[in-house]
Amino acid sequence: MLTIDRLQVRYGNKTALLVDRPLEIGAGDRIGVIGSNGAGKTTLLKAVLGLVPYHGRIRTKLRPEDISVHMQQNHYVGTMPVKHIISAILNTDVKTDKKLRGLIDFFEFSGCMDKKYPALSGGQKQRLTIILVLYQDAPLTFFDEVTSGLDFETRQKLMEKMRAWYAGKESAVMIVSHYYDELERLADKLLILDHGRVAAFGKTDELFRRYCGRAVVTIPANEKNRALTAHIKTVAAPAHLLAFPCADETDEAHLASLFIRENIDYRRSGTDIEILYSNVLSGGGAL
């Protein structure tokens, strides 16, 4: 569907993005794009969309109209009801378009149709743009920080709606997000960028096994827990956690037995993207 190879974007003397090995995006892919501010996430989307000059190759059989995008900032006229904005942008009749009515109902947006854009909440504004984007049924869609600025509950509801909408569809999706929990719900592949370079790309479960092991067990990183586990191998983790790699069930059982005996709360995961991200950037591996 889309291949990105030897791609370089420069702003003056600074290399904002360098993709030095092919990135393949196929039908049905759900790719999460993560990295710190300035890592090159938005630059990558803009290059694919032809919005910034670049060197290298972006190969695709898709037409421009086969790619849709949800950018971070979206603004609409504030002097007319939202239903007229939707009709004008999509060039359709809201009342008679069954496909559009289905999207409006699916995203629980019917009660907002007579409101003006400035009167919408943050979550409602995001749902409006999502409806406009999804109506296109594009083979490839980019979402850039789709839930930025929303509260936790609104983010969760919106992500559940999007996950349900794309279930079973052959459309490919690339999702730029700072929220690891969103990517755990929506993505089965990860593209990790660091200072404009590709740090890792592949299926989430395969990357996790490579960098973290079969599973990781985490506990709070307090003084007592550090002393208790000083002899046990750790992998990179956020500062408030200690993370222990497990190569097999025996490793997990030993750790669980220790933490239960010591009355320490612990969490086991085989998909924790935050832990995976930490270990990719640290350059290490569990095994």
Rank of each mutant, 00 (worst) to 15 (best):
H254C: 08
Y277N: 02
R268S: 12
R210E: 14
R59W: 03
A187L: 13
V280N: 00
A200P: 12
V198M: 10
F152Q: 09
E108C: 09
D144R: 04
F142P: 15
K14A: 11
G168I: 11
K46C: 06
Y211R: 13
P22G: 04
D181I: 14
L255Q: 07
R10K: 15
A39E: 02
C212Q: 09
I89S: 07
Q136K: 15
G149I: 04
V173D: 05
R209L: 05
D144V: 07
A237N: 06
G283R: 04
R226K: 12
V48W: 03
R10F: 02
R185H: 13
F244W: 06
E262T: 05
T43I: 06
P245T: 06
G12P: 03
L183S: 11
H231M: 05
A164R: 14
K99M: 05
L140A: 14
G284I: 01
F152N: 00
L120S: 00
E184F: 15
D66I: 07
L45R: 03
D105G: 13
L49V: 04
D248E: 09
M113S: 07
R163M: 09
V280Y: 04
L7C: 09
E65F: 09
T129Y: 01
L45Q: 14
T79E: 14
A243V: 08
A27Q: 10
L193V: 12
I58R: 07
L242D: 10
A27F: 03
T92P: 03
I89D: 07
R57Q: 14
G202E: 09
A253Y: 06
V82I: 13
V82E: 07
I260Q: 15
